[in-house]
Simulated assay, not measured.
Amino acid sequence: MNANRLSPRERQIVQELAGGSSLSMAAETLGISKLTAKGYRDTARNKLGCLVVAPAMVAAAYDAGALEIPAHDGSVVEMTDEQRELLPLLIAGLSTTEMSKKLFQHIERVRFNLRGLVAALGGKDHAHAVTRAYQLGLAGPRRQSVEQQQFAAPDEVLGAHPAAAP
């Protein structure tokens, strides 16, 4: 994986997509043609070892350290179990049809829950929802520390000494 070898333009394109911009918007922001932006995106995908859709490319960029995960903004996310079940599939880059088959759910139900997931995360689109998941510690390297905090024993949270326990 050549993630650290992304050119500055490739990194800018991936960053724009991670921020919720479409490829056209990214091209306009960077003052390049859409075709040129597409070339940078495709090269970045190849370097990240990710030949699928933008959400998976964004996740691969965060996992490889090619993009810095935004700082947690203090947001609290409330998701349904169905939305929570979709998050790893979205991050993996599965299509709505693939998610439907994997979860044995009607495609319209999956679409409904995906829209809810993106909204719950405060995402502008699927790629931005992945960014928000990483930012909020629901995916990536921060996930383990969040789970440890959630499931810590009450004594650990309060800082009680182990010898003081009955």
Rank of each mutant, 00 (worst) to 15 (best):
M1I: 01
N4L: 14
R5A: 14
P8M: 01
R9V: 04
R9A: 15
E10S: 07
I13F: 02
Q15T: 11
L17G: 07
L17C: 08
A18M: 03
G19H: 03
G19F: 00
T29V: 03
T29W: 02
L30N: 04
L30Q: 13
I32R: 10
I32T: 06
T36N: 12
T36G: 02
T36P: 09
K38G: 05
A44V: 04
R45D: 14
K47V: 07
K47Y: 09
L48I: 03
L48A: 05
G49D: 10
V53S: 13
A56E: 07
M57N: 09
M57G: 11
A60L: 00
A61C: 00
A61S: 00
A64K: 07
L67A: 10
V77F: 06
V77P: 01
V77I: 14
E85A: 14
L87Q: 13
P88Q: 14
K101F: 14
L103P: 00
F104W: 04
E108M: 14
R111V: 02
R111T: 13
L117W: 09
L117P: 07
V118N: 06
V118F: 14
A119Y: 09
G122H: 05
G122F: 04
D125K: 09
D125H: 12
T131L: 02
L138I: 03
P141K: 09
Q144H: 13
Q148N: 12
P154R: 02
E156A: 13
L158I: 15
G159V: 03
A164F: 04
